[in-house]
Structure formats: structure tokens, C-alpha cells
Amino acid sequence: MSILVPRDKLIEMYSIMVLIRAFEDRAHELFAAGKLPGFVHLYAGEEAVAVGVISNLVKGDYITSTHRGHGHCIAMGCDIKGMMAELYGKRTGICKGKGGSMHIADFEIGMLGANGIVGAGVPLAVGAALALKYRSPGNVAVAFFGDGAMNQGCVMEALNVATIWKLPIVFTVEDNQYAISMRSMAPTKLQPRVATARSFAERAVGFGITAVTVDGMDVLAVYEAAKAAIERARRGEGPSLLDCKTYRYYGHFEGDPMVYRSREEIEEWRKRDPIRLFKERLIRMGVATEHELEALREKALKEVEEAVSRAEEDPYPEPSEAYTDVFTDPYY
């Protein structure tokens, strides 16, 4: 590893990864138990991407997220009690129960929203980057989106606009191998410079955007690649794209029968579980002992459990709240 990350930072990154995993595993159970209304898309397996990228952000930076946004929210520091209450549709939810799993946002900490429309957060991130360039040079925006968004027109428009305006933005593709049921590369024609290349980075190059392919199961690899991209953006050198190769453990949505992939394939990817890889490395590097890391995991489980108990007991919104918050002025 060519980078030197302070011990506290490494421990913090690990803590967030296990918190995301604990949250998602629990949400999986809660959905199966019929506790969560609506659609839920889980991030388990992809933790290294959110944590590797977001660990480089500072106050004043922004991100936009996707329908699979819980990991980004937690990594940005969203309150998990508020998030769990939001998944339940409770009044105490981070969005007062008006958004749900697909629409969690906390602008005060720079989290500009998960999004129910594939690719739609990307132009919004470009707009945030435009505002930063104008008002707060040195800050950056990060747009997270999946491989499936790579063929959305608005994403390509956003890539072009960001590069001609030289905006401080990092496009982070989370290639979790599937666009719902389609193999991630199947719907995307690329013109690789190298015959074996299977990366969306190839497409970014066509936009004049610096791009790299990253092992999205290795949080330090993501951290390092993101660091370089984010520093470029902070220096005013324009956008970059990271193509992070990762894997989602659960279905596209909770309840997905997953007819498009085998159990063996999932097991194969789980062998390179991002949390396990990081844990082994931390132990090897002498950063922490197995016992210490296990304690962090238990702490995360406890925190999630507390969020669940709170959410269970919290009240639903009053029906009259359906009519507020459409505009800044009263309902009409």
C-alpha cells in the first residue's frame, strides 16, 4: 500500500463499513418480516466504495446518491436512528417519513439525496459542483451512480457539461455487476484501448475525463484512487471518473428472486468481502487486533438495534402532514 492513512482514520473507516453492513443486514430482515413498507435496495457488499470515497471528503463537500443510498448516507454521517425511522415511514424519520428509503437526504452535512430515478442525481451533482466552483473553490461534489446509469442520457450530458466547465466533481461508478438483472457490461458498448478492458473508464476518456478502474472491494484502493481524483478537483483541474468494481450481495430490491445469478457466484464474491479484506489487512498491519475489530462490529450491531427499537416505537406522521412541505408557503 503506497498511502499512509493515520490509524484513527483506518479505524473510523472500518467502523463505518461495519455500521453500513449491520444496517443493511438488519433492513433485509426487517423487510422480510414485513416491517418496512415500499421498496428497499440494499448496499451490502459495496461498502468499500462509499467509505473509500467519502473518507476523503471535508465539510462543505457534497454528494448525490442513488436508489441504493443507505451506504452513502451512513458514510456521510446521517443519523442512523433518523434513517431507520425513515425506512419505517415514521414521523421522526430524517425526512419526516415523506421520502422513505429511496429519498434520504441531509443537506446540512452535504448529502444531497438518494434518488429513485436511475442517473438523475448526476446532473444535480454537476449543479452542486457549479455552485461550489462559483462560491466555494476548493470544495468538491461526488456523484455516485451505478453501472446501469451509464447509459442514461442525462448522465452523458452531465459528463460533458462537467468537463467543458471544468467542474470540481468526481463521478463514481459503482459497477456492482448488475443493472437490475442484466450483466453490467451487456448493455454498454465500449471501445477499449486494451482488448481486455471492461471498464466504464473507457467511456469517460471519450469525454476527456480522467478515469481509472478500481477494485471496489478494497477500501484502501478506493480511498487512494478517490484521493487523487478529489485532490485534482480541489485544485481546479476538473472532473474525474472512478469505475469501482464491486458486488451487491442482496437482490436489486428486497424480494428480488435473483433468477439471473447463481448462489455460487455470490459465494465467490463473498470470498473477497470488503469488510473481511480490510479486517485482515488491519490485523496484518498491526493497526488493530481481531478482538478490537470485533468489538467495533458489535458496537455497530448495538447501534442499529437501538435505531430499530426507537423506530418501532416512534409515531407515524399525522395525516395533516401530507399537505405540508410542498412549497415554502402554505399548501395550494
Binding site: 448525490t64 444531497l112 451533482a125 454537476v126 449543479g127 452542486a128 455552485a131 462560491r135 442525462c154 452531465a158
Partner: peptide, 11 residues
């Protein structure tokens, strides 16, 4: 989309 994003953060 960019104008909307910029407006959401204060422009």
C-alpha cells in the same frame, strides 16, 4: 439538472 442542483445548494 445542473441549474436545479445549484439552486438546491443556494444559488
Amino acid at each position: 439538472g445542473a441549474a436545479i442542483g445549484a439552486s438546491a445548494v443556494g444559488l
